[in-house]
Amino acid sequence: MTKLKINGEIHTIDVDPDMPLLWAIRDIIGFTGTKFGCGKGFCGACMVLMDGKAVNSCQLPVSSVGENELITVEGQTENLQLLQKSWEEHNVPQCGFCQSGQLITATALLNGNSNPSEEDINNAMVRNICRCGTYPRIKKAINHSVELKNKG
C-alpha cells in the first residue's frame, strides 16, 4: 500500500511501486486535471507541486514520493489561485490542455521567487510546451500576478 498526500488529503492506494505518480493521480485516485503529454518528462503537462516545487509526475515513481505533500492544479495554494485569476484575466488558454502544467510550474516559480525577471520566467517555464503557442500570454499573466503580489 502506498500513501499519498494530495491537496491536503491522504489517499491510500494499492499499486505497483514503480507506477509513475501521474497515473496514480489520474487513473487510480481520479484527479484528471494533471495531464499526460509525453510520458518522458519533455513537455511538462504532468507537473505537480511536491513540497512547493514543480516535478514531472510522469517521471516519479509513487514509491519515491514518501511523505512529501503534493498539490495538483485542483488544489489550493496562494500562488496557484493568484495565477489562475491572472490566466482568466489575460485569456491565456487556447485548447487549455497544457495549462495545468504551466500553472504548476509558474506557481513553483513564484513560491521560490517573489519578483522574477524575464530571464527567471524563461528559465522556469522552458520546461513546459504549449503547442497552441500561448507563451506571450502566459508571460503576461505571470507578470500580472507578480504585480498583484507586490501590491498586496
Binding site: 481520479g30 484527479f31 484528471t32 486535471g33 494533471t34 495531464k35 499526460f36 495538483t72 492544479v73 485542483e74 489562475q84 490566466w87 482568466e88 485569456n91 491565456v92 488558454p93 485548447c95 487549455g96 490542455f97 495549462q99 495545468s100 500553472l103
Partner: peptide, 20 residues
C-alpha cells in the same frame, strides 16, 4: 473572453483523456 477560460485554468474541463 472565452466562456471556457476558467475551467481551462483550474483542471475541471474534461478532455477526451479525462473522460471516465
Amino acid at each position: 473572453p472565452s466562456k471556457d477560460v476558467a475551467n481551462l485554468s483550474n483542471g475541471s474541463a474534461v478532455f477526451g483523456l479525462d473522460k471516465r
